[in-house]
Design a protein around this nucleic acid. Structure first.
Lengths: 231, 231
DNA sequence: TGGTTAGTTCGTGTACAATCGAAGTATGGA
DNA sequence: TCCATACTTCGATTGTACACGAACTAACCA
């Protein structure tokens, strides 16, 4: 039997600039080594090492060793969810530079959220699948119809394997930019990775923004009649 | 045009024990005066006053004056949502006392979340309405069917007035205890307040736990065929 | 074997934020 | 009019957690 949960310690972990930088760097779903994270924080390796240890102890990060490297990633999708929920409350600050403005526009258009797609593209795909009857929304989750399963198989996603994985199949995840849900969970992850494999979307440099390639634009239009507002 | 949101400052606000105590005290949806909150924090009025000012500046609290009193409440439902999302990540600590255990059980069974019902009772009602076709879930929201509207009217809730309010009608809100959605927004608030008015549910002392009265138990069974697992 | 790189542990300095006493401003009631 | 209550502002104190240099272990390579 557990006691009433207390958000204080988790919030304190997130509410420190260096640790927030780390979490945001990993919010795109990547695994990054400690040195890389130290560089992004502009702090020494020692300092970041202690932050990483605390985040891992606190259950926010998971870590894997590869030889002498340690790769850190968000421990689970709930961490990404909490970060997005805090983003919704964050004071909207006006852009300070052209650089920032382009970054924000790109993120609003499409980005990875943990390991699935978010932004106008992620929400648009969820909508398109829904309006074609491929998925239905209930209980905070997307449910796949037989037609949806058939379409996904044709698209190159083995839905049988996904459904049998221990991970939640397709929970809704609320977008901070669109304020509507996109598909996360095993299905969201599989769709994102299939889109990367097809070359329909591609990562953009160091940011977690994602761009839609010309092939992707044509493909989504042909397959789902989806035209994403580029804004 | 806004820049990319940054969760750091909000998390830092929540991640301080006194401020977290304040937010949790208000998570039940009540409005409380500053002195009351100071008492709960076991801190002096001055100290709490500065915390309240920072929470208000940060957009987490709203305040209303009544004479020389100031009543504080959560600024909006998103604040409650973020707190619940952090609760999901909070380390599960074993109960330390019988007192704590009873508290946790009571909260799991039924509690107010901001101004609507959560816990097994809140989730159970949402499920019951859904399975009768009174509401459908889509897009992170519950939508009311004509049959649902008729039932609510009979139940004493003027759905027309609700729909025209500026507040979101019935978004899904994810429970930390049940990990499934319950009804929040204008409809969630109206349902909770109707249940209080009917005497079907009642507040339990100082906690935000809520108990189901014998009348409520009978009423929910008769009206919605709902039997809430007391566990 | 010795050198380089990745990451950790330890001890110390420092800066910031939480806290409270003292003194202030409103409001309400006797 | 005077006093009590609710809350705020100011200034001083204190505690803590962040940061880094120095020194460590562990892996990899030549």
């Amino acid at each position: 039997m557990d006691a009433v949960p207390d958000p204080t310690s988790v919030a304190a972990l997130i509410g420190e600039p260096a640790r927030a930088t780390i979490l945001l760097a990993l919010l795109g779903g990547e695994s990054l080594p400690a040195t890389d994270l130290a560089y992004r924080c502009r702090l020494t390796a020692q300092t970041v090492s202690t932050h990483l240890a605390r985040l891992t102890d606190g259950g926010l990060l998971a870590v894997e060793r590869y030889g002498r490297h340690k790769y850190y990633r968000l421990a689970n999708p709930q961490v990404a969810h909490a970060l997005e929920a805090l983003n919704v409350l964050a004071p909207r600050q006006p852009v300070r530079s052209l650089r920032q403005s382009e970054e924000a526009t790109a993120l609003r258009f499409a980005r990875t959220c943990y390991d699935h797609l978010a932004g106008a593209l992620g929400v648009g795909m969820a909508q398109a699948l829904d309006s074609r009857g491929y998925v239905a929304q209930a209980d905070g989750h997307f449910r796949l119809s037989p037609e949806g399963a058939a379409w996904l198989e044709r698209f190159g996603i083995a839905t049988g394997t996904l459904a049998s994985s221990r991970r939640a199949f397709a929970p809704q995840c609320l977008d901070w930019s669109e304020r509507r849900p996109h598909i996360s969970g095993a299905l969201g992850a599989a769709m994102a990775s299939r889109l990367f494999a097809l070359g329909w979307i591609a990562r953009t440099g160091s940011s977690r923004a994602v761009r839609l390639t010309p092939e992707g634009e044509a493909g989504l239009l042909a397959e789902l009649d989806l035209r994403v507002p580029s804004r």
